[in-house]
C-alpha cells in the first residue's frame, strides 16, 4: 500500500549548518507515527519541509502517493511548533475561521468547532477571547483547529509540550480515537514516554540524521537481547567500566538499565556486577524507547 507520507533523502541547510541531512522515512496509511529526537535534532525543520513552509535543498516529499501539491496540503491538519492564534478573537470565531480556510462551509465549521471544544473540555470557553485563556487551553484550541476539516493526515509538532498530565491524557485518547477512524498521524516529541505507548512506528533523528526507523515493536524485539535491568542496594557508580557493559542508563534510586555489547556474555557481566555492588535483581528485558534511542545514537557515532 502507498504510504500516506514519504520523505526521500531530504536535506536542508541554513548557511553552513546542516539541519536535516538525507532524511528518509515513510508513514503508512492509518499509522500513528512518532518523529523523535532531542532538541535541535531537526524534527521541526523536517516537518516544515513536509508542510512546504521550507523548501528542501535536495530530496523529495511525497504525499498520498504522489509528489506534493498545494491541494494535498488541504488534506492535512497541522499544528506548528510555535503556537499562534489571533489573541483578540473569540475561541469559536477563531476555529470557524480556520475551518473556513481549510474549505469547510461556515455553518459546518461552527458545528464541528463546538464538537471539538466539548471533546477537549473547553465548551465553556467558546465565547471567550483567546488572550483570556491559559497557554495549555490555547494549545488545545489550536489542536481543535487542525481537526475541523477532518484531515486524512494529522501532523502535530510537539503536541504534548505545555499540557498538564490530565490534558496529555485527553490528547492521547483523542489521537487513539482518530487513528481508530483511519486518520494517519505523525507527531514529534523529545519526550520518549509520550511515544512509547502511542506509536506503532517511529523515526528517531539526531543531528539531522535518521538513527533508527521502523515499527516500534519490531525494533524492540530486534534489540531486546542486549538490555538488562539491574536493581541493587549498593552504589551504581562506575558500572560503565565493567567489561561488556557499553552504557548505563540510571533510572532512579538503585535501578539502572545496562546496555551490553554485542559480544558480551550476560553471565560474566553479572559476576562482575556482584563483585562491585549488592545485586538484588538482574534480568533481560525489552528496551524502552529511551534505551533504544541512546543505543542508536551511540551506534551511529
Amino acid at each position: 500500500m502507498e504510504p500516506t507520507l514519504e520523505l526521500d533523502a531530504v536535506r536542508k541547510t541554513f548557511g553552513d549548518f546542516v539541519a536535516v541531512d538525507s532524511v528518509s522515512f515513510a508513514v503508512p496509511k492509518g499509522s500513528l507515527f512518532g518523529l523523535l529526537g532531542p532538541n535541535g535534532a531537526g524534527k521541526t525543520t523536517t516537518i516544515r519541509m513536509v508542510m512546504d513552509i521550507l523548501a528542501p535543498d535536495r530530496g523529495e516529499v511525497r504525499l498520498f502517493g504522489r509528489p506534493r501539491s498545494r491541494g494535498d496540503l488541504r488534506r492535512i491538519g497541522y499544528l506548528p511548533e510555535e503556537r499562534g492564534l489571533y489573541r483578540r478573537m473569540t475561541v469559536a470565531d477563531q476555529l470557524v475561521f480556520l475551518g473556513e480556510l481549510q474549505g469547510v462551509p461556515r455553518r459546518e465549521a461552527g458545528r464541528r468547532a463546538e464538537h471539538w471544544l466539548e471533546r477537549l473540555e473547553l465548551g465553556a470557553w467558546a465565547k471567550a477571547k483567546v488572550e483570556a485563556l491559559s497557554k495549555g487551553m490555547q494549545q488545545k484550541i489550536q489542536i481543535a483547529g487542525t481537526l475541523l476539516h477532518e484531515p486524512d493526515l494529522l501532523i502535530l509538532d510537539e503536541p504534548f509540550s505545555g499540557l498538564d498530565p490530565i490534558n496529555q491524557g485527553v490528547l492521547k485518547e483523542v489521537l487513539s480515537e482518530l487513528r481508530g477512524r483511519g486518520t494517519t498521524i505523525l507527531f514529534s516529541t523529545h519526550i520518549m514516554e509520550h511515544a512509547e505507548k502511542l506509536c506503532d512506528r517511529i523515526c528517531l533523528i539526531s543531528g539531522g540524521r535518521v538513527v533508527l526507523e521502523g515499527e516500534l515493536a519490531a525494533l524492540k524485539r530486534a534489540r531486546g537481547g542486549n538490555v538488562y535491568r539491574l536493581f541493587a542496594d549498593g552504589s551504581l557508580d562506575g558500572l560503565e567500566s565493567v567489561p561488556g557493559v557499553t552504557q548505563v542508563v540510571r533510572k532512579g534510586d538503585g535501578e539502572a538499565r545496562l546496555l551490553l555489547g554485542p559480544e558480551a556474555d550476560p553471565a560474566a557481566v553479572l559476576a562482575a556486577l556482584v563483585d562491585r555492588t549488592r545485586v538484588r535483581e538482574y534480568r533481560s528485558e525489552e528496551p524502552d524507547l529511551e534505551t533504544l534511542f541512546i543505543q542508536a545514537v551511540r551506534d551511529a557515532s
Binding site: 508542510m51 513552509i53 496540503l73 488541504r74 492535512i76 497541522y78 499544528l79 506548528p80 510555535e82 503556537r83 499562534g84 492564534l85 489571533y86 489573541r87 480556520l98 480556510l101 481549510q102 489550536q142 483547529g145
Partner: peptide
C-alpha cells in the same frame, strides 16, 4: 504571534 505558520499551511 506565529499565527502565520498555521495559516500558511493552507493558504
Amino acid at each position: 504571534t506565529r499565527v502565520v505558520e498555521v495559516l500558511l499551511a493552507t493558504v
